[in-house]
């Protein structure tokens, strides 16, 4: 007799449909499309910062040798060269070079052998230079990297932490719920900047990852609160009762029946959280306790602007970039919450 076997079926149907609907509702609005596009551009800028603004060319031919992406492989022959000195060398010895769109590195000070402090925007430096003579545009491009790094990875920590704590507290209830609630309430009471400044002061500023962990460890309460409320709401649904009556395990009920239902609001809260984390990062960098000094950051640029207030280009451009980024993420979050709300 042939042994009867349960065939394992993956019921992706509903979730695919849900994703499709959310997607369609989200992209129906022009503002959401624009915001999503801007976020994509900023993420790509952060990712490809080394090829958009770099002191090394994208590709060049020097001394009869072709180098491709020297910023990535850093060949020993090109250590002493930047875009400008390569141009001079080509004019003398022949060859060719393909400079990146912004031909300056974020920490490059010398341009054509000289230093240009606080140069206003012009043909050489499109957005001017800062008080150390570094190109503002190059620093904005590289600042996108630290902003997105801190925003995305700290929110990843927050979401994972808040999601699990909130879901477990709501699902098991009773004592654990009270403990989790007390923890959330306690952490909410701390004014964020005082807490993070205190931590940074006590631990010392070591790297940008410390900032990521600190923000992640202190800001998970929003996600946890949303998750808890949503799980509590879902627990009253009949299909959860049905799943219980079938004798399914806690893990399975949580994973297959509750978590998909609460994913939407959690995603929304995480999106707003990214904007919040970026604001915290830039504020801390502005105060001088964010990413350690040579790292390019929008807040750090604004701190420089605060020190030399007559230079409008230092105040305006990084600030506009930062505001636009936060605005785009907030619009996306708002659009997402509308799209997730009604299915």
């Amino acid at each position: 007799m042939k042994k009867f076997k349960f065939k394992k079926k993956r019921d992706l149907g509903i979730s695919r449909l849900w994703l499709y609907k959310v997607n369609r509702r989200f992209y129906a609005r022009l503002a959401n499309r624009l915001a999503a596009g801007l976020i994509l551009v900023i993420c790509l800028t952060g990712l490809l910062a080394d090829f958009i603004a770099s002191e090394k060319p994208l590709a060049c031919r020097i001394d009869e040798k072709v180098h491709i992406l020297p910023a990535l492989f850093s060949p020993p022959e090109l250590v002493d060269y930047d875009n400008q000195s390569i141009l001079e060398k080509i004019a003398a010895d022949g060859g060719w070079t393909l400079a990146p769109p912004v031909p300056y590195g974020p920490n490059q000070i010398k341009v054509w052998g000289g230093i240009d402090w606080l140069a206003p925007p012009g043909s050489l430096h499109w957005l001017g230079t800062d008080s150390s003579g570094r190109d503002v545009l190059a620093r904005i491009v590289h600042g996108a990297r630290s902003a997105m790094l801190v925003g995305l990875s700290s929110m990843l920590i927050c979401t994972v932490l808040g999601f699990f704590l909130g879901a477990l507290a709501a699902y098991f209830g009773g004592f654990w719920d009270r403990i989790a609630n007390a923890g959330i309430e306690t952490l909410t009471a701390f004014p964020t900047l005082f807490l993070i400044l205190g931590i940074q002061g006590l631990l010392g500023i070591s790297s940008i990852w410390q900032l990521v962990i600190v923000i992640g460890a202190t800001r998970w309460t929003d996600v946890a609160r949303v998750t808890r409320a949503e799980v509590l709401r879902t627990m009253n649904e009949e299909y959860v009762d049905a799943a219980r009556a079938l004798g399914l395990s806690h893990v399975r009920i949580l994973r297959r029946h509750i978590l998909p239902a609460v994913l939407g609001p959690v995603l929304v809260s995480a999106t707003f959280g990214i904007a919040g984390a970026i604001l915290i990062e830039s504020t801390l960098s502005f105060l001088g306790y964010g990413a350690p000094p040579p790292t390019a950051s929008w807040g750090g640029l604004l701190a420089d602007a605060f020190a030399s207030q007559s230079c409008y280009w230092l105040v305006l451009y990084p600030g506009i970039t930062l505001s636009l980024t936060v605005l785009a993420i907030n619009i996306a979050g708002e659009g997402l919450s509308d799209a997730v709300d009604v299915i």
Partner: peptide, 24 residues
């Protein structure tokens, strides 16, 4: 209001100081 909500406080403070403050 949505735009205001997204503006970084310290940037706005700097701008206001720059354009309305005594040194500005």
């Amino acid at each position: 209001l949505f735009v205001l909500y997204s503006l970084p406080t310290f940037w706005v403070a700097m701008l206001l100081l720059k354009y309305f403050g005594s040194a500005g």
